[in-house]
């Protein structure tokens, strides 16, 4: 297991190297630079040249890249051009927002999706089945940010149940945090809820048609026990395999949701940095986000290997 973990961690390094190269490509193609943002739109060319020199932007890109990698080896992601603080600090401060949004959305997607899937599978062929699957399909097909706008209109403005945006740290006020995260997490979860509901349904149907379930039923076990003890447990395994991919989709989707609900997350930090040409934040933000995603995937692989005996022994 340790060997497996180490091997996976080592294989993540070239992946992150490619990520950092892509971030340099982004910097190379983005027109303009940060100087107008720092000095104002009517600053003179001399003022801007001074700032460029101070930030090292006057050097060729490969030189900037080498210096960046040199610092990276010492664990230093540099200093933001605009935020007056280290990149690592700025990104790590935002990470809890994005992670709690994506995490909550993941939980919502799994819980709602599995419930919907079970409902569809146990009422197979009835209108409930069709209704749940239509709902799942609808969730899969609507743009999540658009759904977010609808949620704001209905639940924040119309009914006033939830705030329309803003972030309350859970450490300060848990109830406030839960309230501020409900609508964003729901909006973000809707697509993945559809995916999970459909997976659960087909997995349940497959498991329920298998011999041991039939046997269990024939032996007169209570229907609910059969469903929850045997069918569901086996149906959950494929869901675990997609959690890794799903985390990626949620972390990516969080960018838009953060912007709709004005949450100070990493996604908005990166987009803002691209728009304002804050290069160190672009590089550090992309690298850290990718690292989180890669790490989650490794964890999912581990969990999967641990849960599914076939895989465990296969290795």
């Amino acid at each position: 297991m340790i060997y497996f973990l180490l091997r996976r961690l080592a294989s993540a390094l070239p992946v992150l190297f490619v990520v950092s190269l892509v971030s340099f490509v982004i910097i190379a193609i983005v027109p303009g630079d940060v100087t107008a943002e720092i000095a104002g739109s009517d600053s003179t060319e001399i003022q801007r040249a001074e700032i460029r020199e101070r930030l090292g932007l006057d050097r060729p890109l490969h030189e900037q890249a080498l210096r960046w990698y040199g610092r990276l080896l010492q664990g230093d992601l540099g200093q933001s051009f605009l935020l007056n603080r280290p990149v690592t600090e700025a990104v790590l401060e935002r990470l809890p927002v994005t992670l709690s949004l994506a995490g909550l959305a993941l939980v919502l997607a799994i819980v709602l999706g599995v419930l919907l899937g079970i409902l569809a599978a146990t009422k197979h062929g009835t209108w409930l089945d069709q209704g749940s699957m239509s709902l799942a399909l609808f969730g899969l097909s609507i743009p999540d940010f658009w759904f977010a706008l609808v949620l704001i209109s209905v639940f924040a403005v119309g009914l006033g149940w939830f705030p329309s945006g803003g972030y309350v740290p859970a450490s300060e006020n848990f109830w406030g945090w839960a309230k501020s995260m409900t609508l964003p997490a729901l909006a973000l979860a809707i697509t993945q809820m559809g995916v999970i509901a459909r997976m659960t349904r087909s997995a349940m149907l497959e498991v329920m048609s298998q011999d041991y379930i039939r046997t269990a039923k024939a032996k007169g076990m209570v229907r609910r026990t059969v469903i929850f003890k045997h069918a569901l447990r086996n149906a959950l395994i494929p869901i675990i395999t997609v959690i890794g991919v799903m985390t990626g989709v949620l972390l990516g989707g969080a960018v838009v949701i953060e912007s709709v609900f004005s949450l100070p997350g990493v996604g908005r930090l990166i987009i803002g940095a691209i728009q304002r040409r804050d290069y160190p934040i672009i590089q550090g933000g992309l690298l850290i986000t990718a690292a989180v995603f890669v790490f989650v995937n490794i964890m999912v692989d581990l969990a999967y290997g641990w849960l599914d005996p076939r895989v465990r022994h296969g290795r």
Binding site: P14, V15, L16, F17, V18, V19, L21, V22, I26, I27, I29, V30, P31, T247, G248, V249, L250, L251, G252, G253, V255, G267, I270, I271, I274, Q275, I282, L286, T289, A290, F293, V294
Partner: peptide
């Protein structure tokens, strides 16, 4: 495949957003 993995390490549509923002 390492390059593909690298590109896929950007979660979801984040890469598309970043590239589109940079390209204009």
């Amino acid at each position: 495949m390492r390059i593909m993995d690298g590109l896929m390490a950007f979660p979801g549509v984040l890469l598309a957003i970043a590239l589109a923002a940079a390209l204009g």
